[in-house]
Amino acid sequence: MSRNLDPEVADEVPWSDKITPYDESHYVTYMRVLDAERDGADWQEVARIVLHRDPVAEPERTYRCWEAHLKRAHWMTHTGYRRILRNERDSLQ
């Protein structure tokens, strides 16, 4: 399966207790946001590079977009990955 390594992002992450099609197409986005957080990168730089948002022109919209994707990325690492593994396991049986 090929993945777009730099997909366009929505302002808001569609939230669900399940892995969504949006999540599936944005795994790389989530990893990039988490890597940037770990490295101590400035959120505005991350928003510009990863989320394709302009923090100078639209600071509130950009911050909300960055915050939403970071929150979902954390959900994926704490909860969502279990669902991915469970789906993989179920498909093997």
Rank of each mutant, 00 (worst) to 15 (best):
R82H: 14
A10D: 15
D17K: 11
Y63Q: 09
E60V: 14
I84H: 04
T62D: 02
E58L: 03
E8M: 14
E8Y: 08
A73S: 11
R64K: 13
H26Y: 06
I49Y: 08
E12Y: 10
Q93Y: 05
A36P: 04
R38M: 08
Q93R: 12
L70Q: 04
I49K: 13
G80M: 04
T77P: 01
P55N: 05
E58C: 01
R3T: 12
R53W: 04
R32T: 08
E60P: 02
A36K: 04
P55Y: 06
D54M: 00
T62H: 03
V28N: 03
A47H: 00
V56H: 03
L92N: 07
Y63D: 05
E37L: 11
R3P: 00
R38D: 11
M76F: 10
C65G: 07
E8S: 15
P14C: 11
C65M: 09
I49S: 10
R82E: 12
A57T: 08
D39K: 09
R53M: 06
E12H: 12
G80S: 03
P55F: 10
V9H: 09
E45N: 00
D42H: 06
P55M: 03
P21I: 14
R89P: 01
W75Q: 06
H74E: 12
E12C: 06
E8P: 09
R38E: 12
T29L: 08
D17N: 15
H26R: 05
A57F: 01
L92I: 11
S25F: 00
D42I: 03
D54W: 01
Q44I: 00
D90L: 14
S16R: 13
R83Y: 13
S91P: 01
H69D: 02
I84Y: 05
D17G: 10
H78E: 13
Y63H: 13
R89E: 12
E45I: 02
D23M: 04
V28T: 13
P14D: 10
I84S: 03
P21V: 15
L92A: 11
C65E: 05
V13S: 07
R32P: 01
W43E: 02
D11Q: 13
S2T: 14
L51Q: 00
E24G: 06
V56K: 10
E45D: 04
R86E: 15
E8H: 12
